[in-house]
Amino acid sequence: MDSAELSLLLTTEGLRLVDSLPEYSAKGAVQQVAALRKAGHSPELVAAALTQSRLRQKARAKFGGFADRLLYTQAGLEQATRLKVAALHAGRFRDAGVRRVADLGCGLGADALAIAALGIPVLAVERDEVTAALAAYNLAAFPDVEVVHADAESVSLEGVDAVYLDPARRTAGTGETSRLTRPDDYSPSVGFAFGLGERMPVGVKLGPGFDREQIPGSAEAQWVSVDGQLVEMGLWFGALARSGVRRSALVVREGGSAELTAAADSVDAEVRPLGEFVYEPDGSIIRARLIGALAERLDAGMLSAGIAYLTADSVVETPFASAFRVRERLPASETALKRALRERRIGTLEIKKRGVDVDPAALRTRLSLKGPESATLILTRVDGAHEALLVDRVG
């Protein structure tokens, strides 16, 4: 989206058109364009409105019922915080007694929206002009939110007592962009964000794969997964960090959230023989290096050194891992495995792997599966040796 498209969109005609459009369908887009053009709308407005319709449909995964109240860019939506996670972020600022927050690099305004919804005034700063205008629209319902088009690293923080940053991790622009690989190239830069964290309460949202060696020792690091998908790592400084917590894994699902915390990385559990059950820890647990802490809760041991699978003789319900009951150990060689699966009439197979060099999709094709039965296959190492475990999900 460029400034010309934005000008068309932010008119009474443009906003009414976007809100009047039916559910987006790629198959029906050509006919819809023709109908809108016949109704007298310009080609530019039709294109901008249909783009919003498509992005609103995608945004429902992040914003639920609020998706149709907001406007988007492709790049902004890709980086926007999921609303349920943004609400948890906002809760930190409320619990710390913060009076005014600066959201530096606010993007489309998701985190600012959640903070403002708790009655906390927000200074929302965005460097990209189009994105800043859309943020102003998205946050217009909150009188205590000021949206500023400016560079986040140069804006005055007078009157602000806490900062939130979601540094842009993609190249500049509002359409198709590419991912930045060097933290120094983020906007605002990681160095700037960490510098602020040395002198005031600060929250920084980063990708879950951020180099752990660069995490400041004073920060609380929290990895977050939503519905099984690892989505972010948050670093919290000053009053926003919890006493005694330096590592956290937060699991957010439809029914609520659960968290495992520790003062530091946990030591992995001892390797033990394969039991009746295998656990696959959630991605947040793995990234936070809390597998050992989880193993203690489950009375489990490692399946193999350095492999993120746990095993136990009994099953414990936990939000932090998926549990599988072991049916049997199958031959690890592909030819023998194919024969064994055929004998068991398994036609639908979920393949999981850790510690082995195999492409599950390609292997599934080569196995030529046939039959009415279904199962899960775990390809991994058991006490260092390659194994194929035929398992069933528990629950």
Rank of each mutant, 00 (worst) to 15 (best):
374 S>L: 07
258 A>R: 08
267 V>Y: 01
10 L>P: 00
179 R>M: 12
66 F>R: 14
72 Y>R: 07
2 D>S: 13
254 E>D: 14
338 K>R: 15
111 D>H: 03
263 A>P: 02
33 V>K: 15
6 L>D: 04
40 G>P: 12
201 P>S: 10
44 E>K: 11
314 S>D: 02
309 Y>E: 00
243 S>E: 15
132 A>V: 06
215 I>M: 05
204 V>Q: 01
251 V>E: 07
389 L>D: 10
392 D>T: 10
253 R>H: 08
182 R>E: 15
198 E>F: 01
260 L>M: 15
282 D>Q: 14
172 A>W: 09
246 R>G: 05
60 R>C: 14
75 A>H: 06
307 I>Q: 05
60 R>W: 07
116 A>G: 04
328 E>Q: 12
354 R>V: 03
200 M>G: 07
392 D>F: 12
345 R>F: 06
109 G>N: 03
369 L>A: 09
323 A>D: 05
164 Y>H: 15
82 R>S: 12
209 G>W: 07
73 T>V: 05
333 S>C: 10
209 G>H: 14
140 A>Q: 11
366 R>N: 09
95 D>A: 12
15 L>H: 10
359 D>G: 06
337 L>G: 09
380 T>H: 02
224 V>L: 00
357 D>H: 12
166 D>L: 02
346 I>M: 08
208 P>Q: 09
27 K>T: 03
348 T>Y: 06
315 V>I: 13
197 G>Q: 09
36 L>S: 03
187 S>R: 10
43 P>E: 06
179 R>V: 15
251 V>F: 00
238 G>C: 12
15 L>W: 11
74 Q>V: 13
74 Q>E: 15
